[in-house]
Each structure stands twice: as C-alpha cells, then as structure tokens.
Write a protein that binds this DNA or RNA. Structure first.
Lengths: 360, 360
DNA sequence: ATTAGCACTCTAGCCGCGAGAGTGCTAAGA
DNA sequence: TCTTAGCACTCTCGCGGCTAGAGTGCTAAT
C-alpha cells in the first residue's frame, strides 16, 4: 500500500479494463502505459495487489480484473476528475435550454445524461416534502369529484382527485381556494396541511370542513410519500443490448421497480463527497439486483445556491432531488462522475433561478 | 384453402409454436391435437400450406414455423376471441380503481397490461387536440416568467412557462384568467386559442395582448403537437431478458424513440376491426425496427361512450387516445387482444365517467 | 384421399485437440 | 533489497469431426 507504483499499476489495470472489458495482462500493461518497468515487475505488483484484494483473476493464468475494492480505491484516490470543457457545458445548456416546463427539463436532462454516459440515467423531480406551496387550484371534474392542482415553488405541478359527497357551489369553492392561497402560500407542505384545517373550521367555510380535511390529508400524504416523486429515465435500451450477457438482466427488473432505485439514490445523493457526487459500487448499493452494477449520483437543487463563480464550494443545504447514472461496475467512472456532476449543477441553476423571485 | 382441415392444421401449428417457440413437426401435432388423421396426412397439409405461404421451414427437415401471412390468417379467421372472465374484469377494476389522477391511472394501466400479456405495454394519454378546455390557471413563477396550467376535460393537466417582459400585476392576472375561463371553457383547444386573442385585444386587458398571444400560441402548439402527448410504458425489462436473442434488440431502440411507436399506434388504433382491436404483424408495421414484432392496439375514450350494457356496439366516435401491447410476432395473440381490449374499455369508461358531469 | 414404411437430410451437442496468452517461480544482476 | 530475464506450466477459446435424433418427402398400398 505504501508503494506508489503499485497504485499506478492498479490505475492502469482499471483504466484498461474499463476500456477493453477484458482481463488485462502484465505485458499489455507495459505496452499501453509507459511505467518504466518490465512486465515481470508488473506481475509481482499485480500479485501483491491481488493479495490485498484489489484485483482478482477469473481463472489461473488469465489477466487480472479489478474487484469492488479496486474500483473503490480507484474512485477515491486515483481518478483524476476532469471537469467538462466549456464547449461541453455549452452543449448542456443548449440541449436543456429550450424546455418549457420542469417536467420537460428533467426528461431532457435524463436523455442527455444517458447519451453522454452511454448508460441508464435517472432524474428525480424535486421531492414534495422539501418544497413549499405556491398555489392551489380546485376545479370540479364531475358530480362528486374535485381535482386539486397543487403548484410548488420548484415549479412542480401535482394533481389529485378528491371525492366530496355534496359538491360545494362554485362560489364557495373559489372563495375557499382564495383563502387557502392567501393563508398557505410559501408554507412547506406539511405546514400548509395544518393551516388548511383551520381554514376549514373557521369563518363561513364551516361546511367545507370535509373538503378541507381531504385536501389537507392529500397534501400531507404527498409530502410524506417519497415514492410519489416522479422519476425520469433514459437509456435503458443501450444497457439491454450492450451488456446482454445476463449479468445486467436483474438491473432491468430493478429499474422498473422505481422505488428501489429511488431509495438508493436518495440516500446516496446525501453523502456529499469532495467531488459532490456519490458512488456506490456493486454490493455497496445494498441491493441484490445491482450486485454487478454501480450507481453514480448527485443531489441537485440545494437551497443555498452554488456560488455564481461556479467553484465547488461545499453546498451545505440538503438537496431537493437527485440525478444519477447506473451502469456496470466496470463503467467509465471518470466520465460518468463528471457528467452527473455537470447535469446536477445545471439543474440546480435552473431551480435556483426560478425560485429567486418567488414572492413578487 | 377450401379444405377446412388444412386451416385446422394451420391453427394447430400457430398455437403450438406460440407455446413452444420451436418449429413444430407433424408427429407432435397429431399428439397434441386430436385431428383424427395420421402424421403423414398432416405432413401433406403442411407442405400445401407452405406452398401457399402460410408456413415456412427454417431449414430442410425441420419443423414448420408460421409466416406473417400465417399469423395474419390466424388472427383474422382462426383465433377464437375469449372475453375475459368476470373475475379478471374485476381484477382490472381493483387494480386501477385506487388511482388518484389520470396520469396515475394510465401508468397503472400500462403496468397492468404489461403484466397480463408479459410484454411491453404502451398507454398514451388523451391527445390534447381532441380535448376541450376546462380551466386555465396563470401563476407567476419568477420576475419574468409565468406558469400556465391548463386542465382539459379528460382530466389531463399540462403546464407551460410563458416569458412576458413586463410582468403584469397580480390583480390584472386574476382578472384576465377569470375572463379567459369564462369565455373559453368547453371550447376545443384550437378554438380556445382563437378566443383568447380576442380577450387580449378587447376590454381593459389591452395591455395584456402580449400575454394573450403567448398563451394562445401555447394552446395552439399543444393542440397540434401530437408528439407532446405523454406515453406510459411498462414491461420493457421482460422483453429484454426473455427474447435476448438479438432479434428484439432494435425494438428496444424503437421504444425509446417514442415518436415512432406513437405514430404507428395512432394510425393503427383507428382501423377499427370487428374485435375493436387493431393488429399489425411484422412488416405490416411499416417500421424496420419492428420487423420481428407485432403490435396490438385499441383506441379508447370514444366520444360517444360505449353503451352501459357493455356490449361491443360499434363505437363510431374517433378515439381520443390508444393503448397497446408490443411483442414478438409469435406472441399469444388471443390473450393479448383480449387484454388490450379489456383495458381500453375500462379506460373509456373512466374517461366517459369523468366527462359526463363536465358543466355542473 | 389417406396411410404406412423407408431413405434421406439437416442440426444440435459432444469430444478432443492445439494454439495462445498469461502466470509464477527461480536465478542472476544492480 | 528490488528488478529482470528465462522458462515451465496452466487454463481457456475456438475449430473440426462425429453421432444421435427429429423431421421430411416420396412411393406404394389401402
């Protein structure tokens, strides 16, 4: 562990394996990376690295393949993070600039990230529990149903149908929603839920207490329900026919079980590393289906915006949602981490921009 | 073609092949289907069917496999459509009953259909061009941006951001949106777009003509843009690792190109057959990527609702959207057609129900 | 028109083999 | 003590040949 050359060899192995997808031998290493030593020396180092658990050979007398521990060390110490070039940054801006709604933006972001990384990309829309209420609209839909449209400060729009037995008159409804908007705007969702109850009991809205309670519990459940946050996914097809070798098959299943991915990325995106991205390798995901996959995530939409100078100052605020990419354990971590970080920053910018002028 | 037994043989071949996925020989046919004749006779029939283009053998002295023509004849004449059992219908109701919003319903419908058919399922949300306006809400989002939330009679909610240089006052906005709602509700989207222009030019909203135009063109573009209709998909993972044999690979690509699927299903769902479902087999899809796949589609949300007696009375109105399933050409057409039809009917019911009480 | 019998054909799977890549070890040199 | 050249050893991958089995098409009899 003390010798630096060993780790140079480790890095070389990881890099070559990521490129070729095949076990890498000592001679090809000396060919591709001018290490200044002979293949025999490299062999010794590789044997040592294997003893320490960084490498493994699929079978005797084959090349070496990095283990999870090897990838981990590579990601933590050896990977030189290359920030995207200005041209690439501009490309991101162009690609995401023309969006008309938040949903659209996120969908595009997912597509973009999938294309950059060549892997599956996942973008979650801002969690409702961390948003504040901007506007509530109540519209009758049928004889007994109301549609509540809830708009949050992150620009997200949610809708819920409410069943209220005797449908209130239109006048009463508008009066009610006006009051709710006046009293609850700017409050967090759970708080707004409480406030609405009082609106229902007070003043002349007494007969609307049923509606108020329904709306309130809707808000509360939306806030609680992490799973309710939408997820945008892209790039699944590539995964399917690139790595069709059965190893990635369970991953596809997991992807349809959005809940699992959700929880995983959510927790991972909060572990802020120096890079601003979290990486879970193989079993580190604690998810059986992702045993042979790695997840690269980053939160976005931190409340105190990143400084406009763009430097990676430690963002203290908790992220509002996350963006991530999933691929095989032997994925290109450097590129993926850079791309994920860039997209996350861009999205943070978008959301911050929209939020600044909230109470105009 | 005149002999009925030949077609019995054809049906037997198709059924067996759908089950086993392997070329089916004459002897196994006589074993599984008591046709009352010997294998030699069946061999003769099969040779004839091959001459006529209904069957083909992958190589000399192997079993027979249905051709597209064979599947087509099977679907048109030989398949006995089994309506779902009451229990199954109830299961659909249960599965989709707890939905809170239209989006939720459609998402669930896609999942359900995917599970029943074991294939990819696609559900499109009602096309905006065929919907009428129920409500428009305008909310300020930042210093220069407005968020327009548009609710249609099918329960769909769309949002668009508008950029208006001098942000109008809140009072003016509410007054404007009230007028718009009063004048445009119930109109189709293109018509509403025109009406809004007049609202902008008339009365004291004169200074809002810019906003009115922006909103109007938004509505118009939404109505035009077929591609803008959302699509819900499910079951892609099954497809990936069941038929991983490269044949279905291009299909996965096509699925990400939602536009293609969209157009295909849209046109197909309008070709109403006696069953109420449209089937495109292999090259009939006119889509290179779907050369080895079949598509089963049905429109839903016909304006004049299906009679409540549930009988399959010819629904004359054009459908508002579609639901469909995609699988290999050797898929189980009988089950798939039944499932697609059932889900489509259920969705039609949902939408009709919501629509009845529109103008309360 | 159907059927039994038979010769013929084609594929999937298995076995064995040799080439090639890569290792580990040992002994010599710095 | 670290590095390196040389060498014997091991393991997989791919190829050719082979057989068993399933299925066909044809012919002659019913």
């Amino acid at each position: 562990m003390t010798q630096s050359r060993r780790m140079l060899v480790l890095r070389a192995v990881v890099e070559d394996y990521i490129r070729s997808q095949e076990p890498v031998g000592s001679t090809s290493l000396t060919r591709n990376h001018h290490l200044g030593v002979s293949s025999a020396t490299v062999r010794n180092d590789m044997a040592a690295l294997e003893d320490e658990g960084y490498l493994i050979q699929p079978h005797t007398s084959a090349g070496r393949v990095p283990t999870e521990k090897g990838y981990r060390y590579f990601v933590d110490r050896l990977a030189t993070v290359v920030p995207l070039s200005p041209a690439q940054r501009r490309a991101i801006g162009n690609f995401l600039g023309g969006s008309v709604s938040l949903e659209d933006t996120l969908q595009r972001a997912a597509r973009l990230l999938a294309r950059i990384t060549g892997q599956v990309a996942v973008v979650a829309s801002p969690a409702l529990s961390k948003s504040t209420l901007r506007h509530v609209e109540i519209v009758p839909v049928s004889m007994s149903k109301l549609l509540a449209v809830i708009i949050t400060d992150t620009g997200r729009v949610a809708q819920h149908t409410l069943e209220v037995r005797p449908l209130p008159s239109t006048d009463l409804l508008t009066s009610f929603s006006e009051t709710v908007n006046a009293r609850c705007c700017g409050q967090s969702l759970p708080l707004a839920a409480k406030t609405i109850i009082t609106v229902g009991t007070t003043v002349e809205h007494g007969e609307l207490s049923a509606l108020a309670e329904a709306l309130s519990s809707t808000l509360a459940s939306m806030a609680e329900d992490e799973q309710a946050t939408d997820m945008y996914m892209a790039g699944t097809s590539k995964l399917a026919h690139q790595h069709s070798g059965t190893e990635m098959a369970p991953l596809l299943d997991a992807l349809e079980e959005q809940v699992v991915i959700m929880r995983l990325m959510n927790s991972l995106s909060e572990e802020v590393t120096e890079n601003g991205v979290g990486v879970a390798i193989g079993s580190e995901t604690h998810t059986p289906e992702l045993m042979h996959a790695s997840v690269v995530t980053s939160g976005y939409g931190h409340t105190n915006a990143t400084a406009s100078d763009g430097s990676a100052t430690a963002q203290t605020g908790k992220p509002v949602a996350f963006v991530g990419s999933i691929g095989p354990t032997h994925m290109d971590y450097v590129t993926t981490m850079a791309a994920v970080r860039a997209v996350a920053r861009y999205l943070t910018g978008i959301i911050g921009e929209d939020t600044t002028g909230t109470d105009s």
